[in-house]
Structure formats: structure tokens, C-alpha cells
Design a protein around this nucleic acid. Sequence first.
DNA 1: AGGATTCCCGCAAAAACCCGCAAAAATTGC
DNA 2: GCAATTTTTGCGGGTTTTTGCGGGAATCCT
Lengths: 273, 273
Amino acid sequence: MFAAIYFLFLRLHAGFRNQNKSLPMLKKERQAYILHQVNLHNKVLSSTLCAEINVSEDTIRRDLQELAESGKVIKVHGGALSPSFNEVYYLTNGVYSQDQKKVIAQKAASIIRDGMFILTSGGTTIIEMARALPRQLRATFMSGSIPAVLEYMQHPNIDVIMVGDRVSKNSKITIGAEAIARIREIKADLCILGINAIDIRNGITDNDWDVVQLKKAMVESAKKVVCLTIAEKINTIQPIHICGVNQVDMLITERSPDDPLLKPYVDAGIEVI
Amino acid sequence: MFAAIYFLFLRLHAGFRNQNKSLPMLKKERQAYILHQVNLHNKVLSSTLCAEINVSEDTIRRDLQELAESGKVIKVHGGALSPSFNEVYYLTNGVYSQDQKKVIAQKAASIIRDGMFILTSGGTTIIEMARALPRQLRATFMSGSIPAVLEYMQHPNIDVIMVGDRVSKNSKITIGAEAIARIREIKADLCILGINAIDIRNGITDNDWDVVQLKKAMVESAKKVVCLTIAEKINTIQPIHICGVNQVDMLITERSPDDPLLKPYVDAGIEVI
DNA sequence: AGGATTCCCGCAAAAACCCGCAAAAATTGC
DNA sequence: GCAATTTTTGCGGGTTTTTGCGGGAATCCT
């Protein structure tokens, strides 16, 4: 009889110890665990967490929300991300003529429609355009410019394709035969170029050999070519030729389309906005 | 009948922790016991404590409150946590385990020689390594990770090659068949991977299918494979397999190479530093 | 576009907390 | 030793926190 009771005691005692592990986690403890997982793996899924901790998804969601409110994590649909991993910033204060470029960016962003496949160069004007894109725009952007890609990446509904090759440190874009070959493989709806010089007779010109090769390929690989530039660069010439004005479909500056400076380009059949 | 046995069980169970059960515990004694439990398990539930000591929950709560006031424990809803608990999980401001990662980065940077061609993955550890590279190092780095490339670009004597393809927004690396094909084309001296899980039996594993494909290709395309990870990820497993430990040539953590945690990997023939 | 997730909101039950109080226990003073 | 005093404890009740669930909206993926 006593043996039987002692046996029962042992069973119960063991049961207590096992149950100890599945006892409800304290809220703080749970949140600490979640935070730990986020920091360790840079992301967590609420579904995984709720299976691991054995609580309802609502509880996880509430925890995530709390952690997000205090800035410990960034909540996203289905889980959360580590905040430290997501801050990739690229500062462009003190860019030359930034205000004008913002105007250009706004105009350029307005011509982009959902579903378009767009090839873009680099340059500060392009970066401003990337920032000006509406948040709900669904499009695909392809570029070899690292700062531009960083900006495109900020948009939730934009697919970004990075053109790979050797990285040019001063222009921060990928250059070389490989990049050109990749660009040749595609046919984009739009090619948006930030340009350094345009002139009715000499067309678009630039001063970096590698960049010119790339831009040439871009012009060839797109149905429509859009050029962005501040008015200051209109009617200027650089050493290396990219393409003639006849290959340009659209020109965007900070000036009004009926500005006399732009008349020659309108007359040449370019859509100026 | 059952009630009687259960009562006996409770008596015996309590007896396990407190020899002279018949006498009620003194306040000091009780608090010492609670503190002991907290330090032992990092947490206590008021409910279990009150069952163990056989006092009302109010008493436990008052004890906990007192201990909390003198800073011995941290009171939370439902129980208390050890103060060290918070240090471990919460005190990591900024990037998680950044100090450890800096140590790893330093070690990793030290194995790179002039003239090497190095393939690297992404991840915060890799970025730390990129920052730790000596300024006069002349080498070629190839990566699909945009933050990593940004760091490599800062170094005047480093050639950087960006692997192109679709950009994954959460991991900030290029993923896809194109990227894999490009990696396959080369044979690097070194492949440096920031890894998320390593285990003697399961090898290196991760949780993102696209990233795994990329890392697999990297392992295949390098003469030597170097893995970087904080010790915490040692002996953990993720769902998707990258490669076995037999394919790893070097393992770098923040711990000393003769740390017992690392012994199995040393025994497996991996160079651990 | 539609099917499947995930999210959000309100609710209700359970658990934990707080407060005041009075009994029990311990301490102190004589 | 004993009574007064202080401390401690348990308890009842009302409040707050936490958690899971259901249903409908929002969002994602294909």
C-alpha cells in the first residue's frame, strides 16, 4: 500500500517537473525571448513564435506590437524585423540644386504607371526621383546604381533588380561588360537617365567612358527614353557621345515646358514636361 | 480517497524543499528561499511559490515586492525575474551582440591577404568585418549584399564586384538564378559566410530558401570556406541545409579556439580561431 | 480576382493585483 | 510571565491585466 502511494507520488512529482517547462511564460520573459530571436535572426514569423512558445497568435501579435511601440522591433505583416538591420541610409544633404531636382523628381515620378519595367541610371536626380515615387506604385526597377537601388528598396511594392558587375567607387554604379550584357538582355518600357549634358546637335553626352557604355546600352534596351536634367545642363556638351536627340522621347527639367530654352527640343519632337 | 493521497503528495512535495515543514517558514527564510529560486531559474511564478511554501499568494506578493524594492529581483505580473535576466536579453542597445561581432570581424579581417579574391555573403557580422578591413589591403571582394558592398566601397584599395539579380528587400542581398549563375562562374580564394546556425551533424543551415541557394553556390565556388558566427548560434539548427561541416575549412567566433564549445569542430578538422 | 493568411477589435473568463481589515504571531517592556 | 505593541499573515471584495476566441476587415500571394 505504501509502495503504491510512493509510486504515485513519484509520478506526480515527475509530472510537476515536466509541467514546469510548459508553464505559461511570463509576459516579460516571452517578450525577451522574442526580442532575442529577432536580434539573432533579423526576423521572426509570428506563426513560428506561437508554436515555439505555445501561446495564441494574438498574444504574439500583442507582444510584437508592444515591442514595436518601444522601438525594439519593426512589425511587419506576419512577423517582425530587427530595427538595426533595416536602417540603410544614404545621406544626400548638400546636393547641388537639390530643390530643382526635387521638382524634376516629382515630374518624373508622375509618368510612371503600374506594371512598368523601368531601367534607370544613377545620379542624384535619379535618387530624388526614387524618393518621390508614390508608395503604392507597383513596378519593376532595374539599375546598377547602388544608391538608387537603396532608395527603390524602400518602396514596398517595387521589385528591384540590381545589375551586377565591378563597382565604380566614385559613381557608385556597376560598370563593365557584364553589366552591359545584362542590360542588353532586356527590353524595358522606360529608360530614365539622369544626364550631364544635352545639346540639339550633339545629343546626350557625358564624360565617363564606362558610364557612357552603360547608358548607351540602356537607351538601346528601352522602348522609351526619358532624360532628367536641371536646366543648367541644357545646351552643354561633354566629350563622349551617348545618343542623339532623335533617340530621346521625353525630357524633364525643373522649367515649364513652354520655356523658350526648351523650345528647340519640343520642335525636335521630344515630349517636354 | 484521492484527496487524501493528493494531500500526502503535497506534504511530501513540500518536504522535498523544506525539511521542517511543520513549522511555518520565517519571513527571512522564505525570502532567502525565493531569492535562491530566482537566481537558480532566472524566474519564479508566484503561484508555484505559494504552493511550495504553502503560504497565501498575498504573502508571496509582499515578499516579492520587498525584494524588488531592494533590487534583488524584478517583479512582473505573475511572478518575478532575476535582475541578470534583463541584462542578458535587453541591455543590448544598437546592433545585437555588436561587441562580439567586432571581435569576430577583427579575427576574420586578419586572415585576408593581399591579392585574394573573396566571396562573401551578407549579414551584420560580414558588415562588421568589412569595416574592420585594414585600409591598405589590396583584394577583390564579390558579394550580392548591398550593405556589405557599401562598406567594401569605402576602402580605397579594394576592388568590389556586385553580384546582380533581384533584390530581396528583407535580407538586402541579390537572389535568384542569375546571381547563382554568376557565382558559379568564378573560383574564389576564400568564401566568407555569416551563418545563422551550425551543428556538427546537420552542418550549416538557414531559414531562407533563396539565401540558402546563394550560400550553397558560394561554398562550391571557393577554395576555402570560412564561417563567421557568434557562439550563441553554435549547435543550433535551421530548417534548410547549406552544407556539411566537412565542407567548412575555418570557423570564427568571439570565443577562444580552445573553448570546450568549439572542441567538436576542432575535432572535425575545422580550423577554429 | 479569389483564396488563404494575417490583422484588428471587442468581449469574456481567468488570473493576478491592490487595499483595508482583523486575527495571529512575534517582540518588547516591565 | 504577561500585557501592550508591533509585525506579519490571511481573507474578502473590487480593480486591473492578460489571454484566447470569434467574426469581419485588411493584406498577401498566386
